[in-house]
Amino acid sequence: MLGAFGFGLVTAAILSVSAVGFTLQYSVSNVLNLAFVSIMTASGFVAYGLIVVGVTLWLAIALAALAGGLLSALINWGIYTPFIRRGTSTFGMVIVTISTALIGQNLIQAAVGPGFFSYGVVTGRAVNLGGLVLTADQVVTIGVAVAVMAATYLGLQYTKLGRAMRALSVNPSLARACGVDTGRVVAVAWLASGVMAGAGGALLFLDTATFSVTTGSYFLIVIIAAAVFGGVGSAKGAFLGAVILGVATEVAGAYWIPELKDVVAFAVLVLVLLVRPRGLFSEIATLRQAVG
């Protein structure tokens, strides 16, 4: 069953990039962005378009990640920020973001149609890494995820901007009082989150080999599950949640009913909600509620 473990690692890699991006932006901006998956899908199709015109695979994926960042920043600037300035509650914002998600998803569908697409990368020879059978593309995918995670960790921990983000996520008013340029920090968070969404989407499409507009939608379940599992708003928690869920769903699929693989993620989510609703690592969700 080592093979299942190998696939689990690939799933975990893609999931961690996506879930950390999702959570990072949430903790900084306090907006639960349901259009995240639309950004993933849009970026995946950007990568597809670039590959069709002859750009090499990994360059196309990198450019798609950038496109995701731009799109994310644009959505924040054009739609979310005006609503927040109006004083829309977090409660109202989730309706704004799901409207945006619906618009985005269907605009993409109108553009590309209902068909199936493929990057046209024929599965290469598999390599055997200590019992794990992985293709070269899958190894690179895992590498990209590790690099993104490391960059995120170092950035949050050691740069001024990262410290500002963390301050903002714990106590926005205090951060503002200490001279943090909130608007700029939030804008950067949206950009970074979008880049991760873009990378996650393009990598997901590479992993599924064939994709359509709806390929990303089931991924929302696991992203949410990973985010809640690790603790709402905690980037570290989201990463651990992603790794555990990514591997757990594949391995559980191998031993249990394979059709219900995604349901495993859901079962974990329910369990966490019942036992420890704040997630394993975070206090933010409840703290924010108290602060208002």
Partner: peptide, 17 residues
């Protein structure tokens, strides 16, 4: 004899079976 939930990201466990 396998039934696949359609459009999943991977079917590794069924494939190994």
């Amino acid at each position: 004899n396998q039934t696949l939930a359609i459009d999943q990201a991977s079917y590794s466990s069924q494939v190994q079976q």
